[in-house]
């Protein structure tokens, strides 16, 4: 555990030392969020009756999405990992006294959390300070906030578990780059990064909500914005836990096979 923590600290202070980059990133995410909200408002003005979420809800959704972008973004699948699997350098990692699966898992976790830690607070702070309907609302009730936190943690874990499963599958493909492209765009589409799931047609939405992609950012952001409540919210969180278990088990199994394959080939 200690080595993961020190890895995290290193990443975090590395991020901090590039202060201009940090400010630029925060500003970019802020403008991006603002544009996104302006876009949804444009649709709202046109036909308010057809809007599937509340205005405050979608605005909170967008701000939280921006604040925690690094936690859930599909493009955070690291090209270097794909590269090292392709050219076989990953074999060096096998010499270390760590299993590959937890190593890659922890590495992805540290990447995402350290990046998000730097940026989320300023974005949230700005968003809270914005006037009227444009701002991020305060959480409604301690219970729901607690559920939101739980769903956040599960969501990040599912995202990372999915990514690590993809790394494992990479050992068995001829074109890691192609796989990365496909997975990234599928993730973006199905996890609610392009448009939140409630905006899809009902039948589609019902299917999408069961998929593992929906267990990523979709659940926590919609719990916070009040779109998922009561039993529905609980069911969604349980589904997250289910997917986490499945993805970790699958990732672990595939990685074990990959390790055997590597050993047989001699790296």
């Amino acid at each position: 555990m200690k080595k993961y923590l020190s890895f995290f600290r290193l990443r975090f202070s590395m991020g901090l030392s590039y202060r201009a980059a940090a400010w630029a990133g925060i500003a970019t995410q802020f403008v991006w969020g603002g544009m996104e909200i302006a876009m949804f408002l444009a649709f709202y003005r046109e036909e308010p009756g057809k809007f599937p979420m509340t205005i405050e809800g979608i605005i909170s959704y967008v701000w939280l999405q921006q604040a925690f972008l690094a936690l859930f973004a599909a493009w955070m699948l690291e090209p270097e990992v794909f590269e090292s699997i392709k050219d076989g350098n990953i074999a060096y990692e096998m010499c270390r006294p760590m299993k590959i699966y937890p190593m890659l898992f922890a590495r992805a976790m540290a990447m995402r959390i350290s990046r998000a830690a730097l940026r989320c607070l300023p974005v949230i702070l700005f968003a809270v300070l914005l006037p009227g309907p444009y701002g991020l609302e305060a959480p409604k009730g301690a219970g729901r906030f607690a559920l939101f936190l739980g769903a956040m943690i599960l969501g990040v874990l599912v995202t990372v578990a999915f990514g690590t499963l993809i790394y494992a599958v990479t050992f068995f493909t001829i074109s890691p780059e192609g796989l990365r492209l496909l997975v990234t765009s599928a993730m973006d589409f199905f996890n609610g990064a392009i448009i939140p799931l409630p905006f899809f047609p009902d039948k589609m939405k019902q299917v999408m909500e069961i998929l593992p992609f929906a267990a990523m950012q979709n659940v926590p952001l919609r719990i916070y914005s009040g779109d998922l409540q009561g039993n529905g919210a609980l069911r969604a969180v349980m589904l997250q836990a289910f997917w986490l278990a499945v993805l970790v088990a699958a990732g672990w199994a595939v990685m074990a096979r990959a390790e055997r394959k590597l050993t047989v080939q001699g790296g």
Binding site: A42, F43, E46, E47, K50, P52, L181, L182, S185, D188, F189, I194, I195, F199, F200, P201, M204
Partner: peptide, 21 residues
């Protein structure tokens, strides 16, 4: 694929709404 996703987002928005601006 990247810009196709953007298109899909737009396509599904218009499944729900008939116009924007």
């Amino acid at each position: 694929l990247v810009s196709f996703n953007v298109f899909l987002g737009m396509f599904f928005m218009f499944q729900r709404f008939s116009a924007v601006g």
